[in-house]
Design a protein around this nucleic acid. Structure first.
Lengths: 341, 341
DNA sequence: TCGCGCCAGTACAACGTTGTACAGTGAGCG
DNA sequence: CGCTCACTGTACAACGTTGTACTGGCGCGA
């Protein structure tokens, strides 16, 4: 079927190793020979068999990226950046979706399909700190997110507590006093929801304000629908608030939607701040103030770190912790002046 | 390093072929032997080397998916569905982004990385009908989208003309008479923009209305920003309209954004209909009426078709054309009664 | 003129797996 | 008792590539 080194070698009248040498630009090939071989290559339309090459070299030239769901804009944008970064280094990306399901995440770490790639960038959602041992795998692994800390692998993540605190402090500095939260996870301490809620509480504390659990809307998933539904429950409860902190942008957008349905106006009646700085946040009505958690940096750093591990096998070295810078993005939904620096 | 068949065989005191037979559930292995081998496998933590297996079998158990950009919600949702479908069949998906760039799309079709997978689902954006010959490749290929028709490969696509016509007819049936278009591509005949504009014109024709180019907003990209910007230009031009047909949802959402900035209200002053039925369209303010072009069916069908080709190599068979059903989704931005069926 | 070293190229093995051909054992049957 | 056959299991080759060790020839310096 498809031509191999043997076919090219036969046509060019040389050994297969010489053809291999031409392809890999090894020295010690006479120009005349090189030319003859190259002619044979183009004539047959030869392309090296990557599988065979991978078997020899032990490398595949690809890594896997495991995220909960590309339907969630945050992960879609993360994947887009990671794939682009990988592409610029000539590396392919196999994308896996876990649905945020703990069992599937654990399974995925040991899946035979890992053998198709040289490493994994993994953003768990269902697994938690108790599963840290599962991360002790034989291949290069870079962990993302805030479900598990101090694991055996490199970890690239964002400043959830600090950024959430900055968002809350911004609202407080602009005179907001009753700040509702949308998207908390009951009882969670670490994890994006837990950490961001902690940042919110830290800001309240620092301002000498009491934490009021009535202002906190709980949910499980972070889809738009959950944001809207959680906000409706808060409104039904009848507690007054003058601002909303959505623990991510989709929640905040869903919440804005529910606010508008109830006749409240953003930002006239209620200010809203989100978290993630999705592309969409710029174009919502009103545009959504949010936290840019440094996703581009995270994507780039995750790829760099993983490839470095892949290229230096053996040297385990200590696990690295890498933290992105964040930035408050002011927009119409929370139109205050820039905070003092 | 990682154990191989040899290691397992040595430990179990059998030949490597017997171990292979156990792993692949071949018959003619005595239960006692099987047990001994399985014990050795778990003891060593053996996993088959997929690369070697692929070299033998000529299959990789993965296919590639090439889309312009996962940052575009439409493609993110498409990729999510395709990956999920592939996963349910035990197949991996390598995702490539072309940026919609013609050169990169052509290059990608011949990239050595194709050798890492068994086939390709390809959604071109930069290539056009003149590039149809590039699709004549040696591996299984399923084409998506509306850039190229009657190519040598299977093609799964949607009813652009008919669906756009249905959207326009819906607006006309509800009494709208001056329908602006956002997102047209100048001079394009095929391609999503060209076909959907054709559907729009067909609806006008059928209603005995004249096509007015002043109502058509042109752009190149289909991002939210382009929708907003194009709408602003239409407004600046001062032509009156009572409805907007966004050639996709992101354009329509951007356009809604610009309408609201200008003080116009949706749907009180202007109705808006989009195309794609993104998740986001349900949660915008107001929610966006749109066309559901049958994306789930397209994703499922593309995977099925590709895997069928992969599993039946040799038999080229005629290229198949597969068309999804569409559906008008009424929402707040265009709140008419259901159209008669 | 001889010998050394370098260049060009070759032969072979190996990566880890699976298909094919074959060998040994024991049971069943005439 | 001997033959056949089914059942287990083995040895070897092959998938297509690249690293290693090697060979032959030529030029150059002593």
């Amino acid at each position: 079927m498809t031509p191999t080194l043997h076919d090219v070698a036969r046509l060019a009248g040389v050994s297969i190793k010489t053809v291999s040498n031409v392809i890999n630009h090894h020295p010690n090939v006479r120009p005349a020979t090189r030319e003859r071989v190259e002619l044979a290559i183009t004539e047959l339309g030869y392309t090296p068999n990557l599988t065979a090459r991978n078997l020899r070299s032990g490398r595949t030239g690809a890594f896997a990226l495991a995220v909960p769901d590309l339907g969630l804009s945050y992960f879609a944008e993360l994947a887009a950046t990671i794939i682009q970064e990988a592409e610029s280094r000539g590396v392919g990306v196999l994308v896996e979706q876990t649905g945020g399901d703990r069992e599937r995440e654990i399974e995925l770490l040991r899946s035979p399909r890992r053998g198709l790639t040289d490493g994994l960038i993994f953003s768990p959602l269902g697994m938690g700190q108790e599963d840290v041992a599962h991360l002790d795998v034989a291949y290069p692994l870079v962990l993302l997110g805030e479900r598990i800390f101090d694991g055996p692998s490199d970890h690239v993540t964002m400043q959830n507590v600090e950024a959430a605190r900055a968002a809350t402090e911004y609202l407080l500095a602009q005179g907001r006093r009753r700040i509702a939260v949308v998207g908390a996870h009951a009882g969670e301490v670490i994890g994006s929801a837990g950490l961001r809620l902690a940042g919110y509480r830290a800001a309240l504390d620092a301002a000498g304000l009491d934490y009021d659990d009535d202002l906190v809307g709980y949910t499980t998933m972070w889809h738009r629908a959950n944001g809207a539904e959680t906000m409706r429950r808060l409104l039904d409860r009848g507690v007054a608030f003058d601002a909303v902190f959505g623990l991510n942008d989709t929640l905040a957008l869903g919440a804005m939607r529910a606010l508008q349905e109830s006749g409240l106006r953003v930002p006239d009646d209620v200010w809203v701040v989100g978290f993630d700085d999705l592309d969409e946040a710029q174009y919502s009505i009103p545009s959504l103030a949010t936290i840019d958690p440094g996703q581009d940096w995270i994507a780039r750093t995750a790829v760099e770190t993983l490839l470095a591990r892949i290229e230096a096998p053996g040297e385990r070295g200590p696990a690295r912790r890498l933290l992105a810078d964040f930035r408050l993005v002011r927009r119409e939904s929370a139109p205050g002046a820039a905070p003092r620096d």
